[in-house]
Amino acid sequence: MQDADESRQTGFLTVPFFVVCTFYFLVFAAGYQLFPVVPLRLREFGASLAESGRFQTAFMLGSGFGALVTGPLGDRLGPRRVLRVATLAVVGILLIYALLRVRWVFYLLAPLHGLLWSALRTASVAKVGGILPLAHRAQGLSIFGLTGPGGVAVGPLVGLWLMPHLGFSWMLVLLAGVFVALHLLIGFLPREESREIESVGLFQWPDRSVWGAVAVMGLVGLSFGPMPPYSAQEAKALGMAWPSAFLTCFALGMMAMRGLLALTGMGRRPVALLPWMAALTALGYGLLALLPGGLVRHLSSGLVYGAGYGMVHTLMLTHVMETTPPHRRGAATGAFFFAFDATTALGALGLGWVMQRAGFRWGWAIGAGLIALCIPVAHRVVRRPAVTSLSAPSVIVDG
């Protein structure tokens, strides 16, 4: 309770808060630095275009299934301890990536890396929730919620710049050093109070109220799957000077829309905006599939797609919190992240196969169709009444 009392006196801009924000930013920057770069490395080792996307498929499957257990695990061990263990494990995996000369080991390690990514995300969210005092929680989460998209904006840009300058191996060594520093920074976070934990299983079947959100996030994930591994590859194939243009603008679009709606408000029932944001997401995806050219197409599509995509995440998680009984919210959140991560893996695999055989445009066109199917599902979700109320709109803190 001492930490909460100090936070009430000093506000929420404390050292532990900045440590968690820095940590979360770098987790996403590291992940999205690897997503476009590892496929290029696999191509150097002889992988086909379709095969190069399998790293993200394996990674996101590990993350998706991990989301079902890492949240409850953090409840039992404490998020601080989970963060310390996971950061050290990530250091080891990054160093192994740096030494690899055969591509099949990348696919073998990717699910474990994805599981650790899931642990880092869920433990960071849990930790920041414990650090922020109730009076400043909405304001603090609004700031914290920008760190993930910030990492998405910076990661691809840095990774695609560093790879030709340092080489893949030294880039991974540098990244491992960053996680060593993060492991040390976690020491500045307050320790959790010891408490008795109810003896329940690590997995709980989610409440029926979450299935609408699962359907929406499943369609979003299927369409999003090829974005990180293939957008930069298309840019390179077209000879674009800025291969990370789509992913960088995608993150900027997320941040801009979240910032705009945080200032103007989302009304008394934010989920009512969901069909409109799904339509905006589909529009952005359609621009990538149908516009001519290269750089301008990636820039405009990334901004529009990111603006809609980011708010679909925000509104869906808000709705899950409103319509799920409090004692089932852990299972509902796990199902939410599992639906997105697992279908992201399948989207990278399936649409990558299409791009290999028919070209990038066909893959983007099918992805646009999948996200368009999200619009009628979103209308059904909006019609479901809430069973609890929130004092303020929730802010999703995932990328």
Rank of each mutant, 00 (worst) to 15 (best):
W117R: 14
G306H: 10
S142A: 07
L174I: 13
V69D: 06
L34W: 06
A29D: 04
P243H: 11
Q356E: 11
W117G: 15
T318I: 12
A278F: 03
F224H: 01
S118F: 00
G155E: 02
H327W: 14
D207N: 13
R101A: 07
M257G: 05
M311N: 07
C374D: 14
M254K: 12
V387N: 07
G284W: 00
L13M: 05
L291P: 01
G148V: 01
A213E: 10
A181S: 12
D3A: 14
G53H: 03
I186L: 14
A67N: 05
M60H: 11
A135K: 13
F65L: 10
V312G: 12
L175N: 09
G151M: 00
A110R: 08
L346C: 11
T344S: 03
F338C: 11
A232W: 07
F168K: 02
V85H: 09
S7M: 12
G369W: 05
G369Y: 03
G140F: 01
E51I: 02
G11T: 08
A123C: 08
I396Y: 14
L299Q: 09
S124Q: 08
S394L: 15
Q9C: 13
I396W: 12
E234L: 11
T248G: 09
L99C: 14
M257E: 00
G159Y: 04
L115F: 13
L49Y: 04
W364V: 05
V173K: 06
G221K: 08
F59D: 08
G31C: 14
I396H: 11
M321P: 15
C249S: 13
F106P: 06
P133G: 07
A342I: 10
G140Y: 06
L94W: 00
L184W: 15
